[in-house]
Design a protein around this nucleic acid. Structure first.
Lengths: 157, 157
DNA sequence: AGCGATTGAGTTGTGCACAACTGAATTGTG
DNA sequence: CACAATTCAGTTGTGCACAACTCAATCGCT
C-alpha cells in the first residue's frame, strides 16, 4: 500500500525489530535504576537527586539554570526535586543578588558531609556491571553519538 | 574527555566518571523518548502504549501478565496504561473464563486498524539514528548484556 | 527613559515507574 | 475436603519527565 524500503526488510520485520534498540536502552536504563535504588537507599537519595548532588560536590554552589543544562532537566523537574533536597537538609536555595530571577543551589554542611558516604557508590555500581572500563567507555561514546543524532532529528529548543 | 589509565583512578575521579555511563544511557533514552513523542503524536500513543500495541499486533490477544513479562512492566504501570488504551478505543479488557484472576488485552477493530499507520514509525526512527543496522544490533547486544549483569546484581524476583 | 521581548524559576496537569498494599481466584498440601 | 500459600490485577502514594503555562526580573531597542 506504500513504497517498499530499499532493503530486504519488510514492514512487519521492522515493526518487530523496532522496539529493540529503544527497548534494550529502556531496559538497561531501568536496570540501572533498580541498582541505584538499592545502592542509594541508605543515602536517602534517588538517582536524579544523586546526579544533582554529584554536580554540587564537583562544582559547589550552582544556579538552577546550570543544573538543568548539565543534567538535561527542565525547571518542571528540578524545582520539586530541589525542594525535596532542601527539605532533606542537604541543600539551601538562595536567590542570586546579581540577578533576582536566578536561584542558586548551595550545599549545607550535611549535604557536603554526605559526599563521604557517596564515594563508594560508583565502585559498587561499576562492580555490578561486570564490564571493563574500556568497554564502558566505548558504550558511552556510542550512546553519546546516538543521542546527538537523535537530538538533531528532533527540532526542539 | 581526557584519557586516563584505569589504575590511576581515584575516588573523586570515580565520582565524576560515575554518572557517565548511566547518564549517557539516560540521555539516549530520553532522546529516544523525545523523538517517539513527536513521531507517535498523530497516532495518539505514548511510547509505552506503542510498545503494548506492538506486542498485541504481533501476538494478538495477550494476558496482562504476559505483557508485563515481555515489557518488564508491573501491574502498577500496566493497569492504568491499559485503561487509557481502552478509553482510546484501541483495546478491550476481558477477564479470562479459564482463570478469573487473569485479564486479556484484546485489540478492537480500531486498534487493529492503527497498525497500518504505525508501520512507518520504525523507519522514521531508524532514519533519525543515522546508524547502520549492524551497529544498532551490536549496541543492542551490549545493552542486553549490561542489563543482564545489572539484574543479576540486584537480588530481586 | 520607556516598553516590548526574553529569561529564569515555579506551577499545573498528564503519564510512566515502582514499592507496598488489597482482594479475589486458584493451587498445593495435609 | 480444607485451608494456607500463591498468583494475578488493581489501587495508593511517591517521584521523575515533560508540555504548557504564569509571573517577575532583566535586557534590548529606540
Amino acid at each position: 500500500m506504500t513504497e517498499q524500503p530499499a532493503a530486504a526488510l519488510r514492514d512487519q520485520d521492522f515493526l518487530r525489530l523496532d522496539g529493540q534498540i529503544c527497548f534494550a536502552l529502556g531496559a538497561a536504563n531501568r536496570a540501572f535504576g533498580g541498582l541505584y535504588r538499592v545502592v542509594l537507599k541508605d543515602l536517602g537519595l534517588t538517582y536524579p537527586q544523586y546526579l544533582v548532588m554529584l554536580v554540587l560536590w564537583e562544582n559547589g554552589t550552582t544556579p538552577v539554570k546550570e543544573l538543568g543544562r548539565r543534567l538535561r532537566l527542565d525547571s518542571g523537574t528540578l524545582s520539586p526535586l530541589l525542594k525535596r533536597l532542601e527539605a532533606a537538609g542537604l541543600i539551601r536555595r538562595e536567590r542570586s543578588a546579581q540577578d533576582e530571577r536566578s536561584v542558586h543551589a548551595v550545599l549545607t554542611d550535611e549535604g557536603t558531609a554526605l559526599r563521604e558516604r557517596a564515594v563508594e557508590v560508583p565502585r559498587r555500581i561499576a562492580a555490578a556491571t561486570g564490564f571493563e572500563l574500556t568497554e564502558i567507555r566505548d558504550l558511552q561514546v556510542r550512546l553519546a553519538r546516538l543521542t546527538a543524532a537523535l537530538d538533531a532529528a528532533v527540532p526542539q529548543d
